[in-house]
């Protein structure tokens, strides 16, 4: 139901490199999972508003005031690579 081509296409959409072996295994596993999920399509949902959050969001107001945050150094401290306060990335050919 979900082919190896589908898996490869979606993996690229999700920016995930996967091996050929993983592609094969995922196609089998996800077909079985989605096969089991098939009966959801039989539920009558005509006119039902999709629910994206389980409780009513109350919403609240707060003053729009600037609060101090960390130093730039603290924000940069986890960067894989940085130059000063700039994130550094390796050169990309294409």
């Amino acid at each position: 139901m979900i082919s190896e081509e589908d898996v490869a296409r979606v993996a690229l959409l999700a920016r995930l490199s996967i091996t050929n072996e993983e592609t094969k295994r995922l196609a089998t596993q996800l077909s079985s999972v989605l096969g089991h999920f098939e009966h959801v399509s039989k539920v009558n949902t005509e006119g039902v508003e999709p629910m994206v959050t389980p409780t009513d969001i109350e919403g609240f107001w707060r003053e729009d005031k600037v609060e101090g945050w960390k130093s730039a150094e603290a924000a940069m401290a986890n960067a894989p690579e940085a130059t000063g306060n700039l994130f550094k990335v390796p050169p990309v050919v294409g």
């Binding site: 959801v40 039902v48 999709p50 994206v52």
Partner: peptide, 9 residues
């Protein structure tokens, strides 16, 4: 979308 509808039900 279908899952979110059934979720409401």
């Amino acid at each position: 979308k279908k899952a979110c509808q059934v979720r409401r039900l």
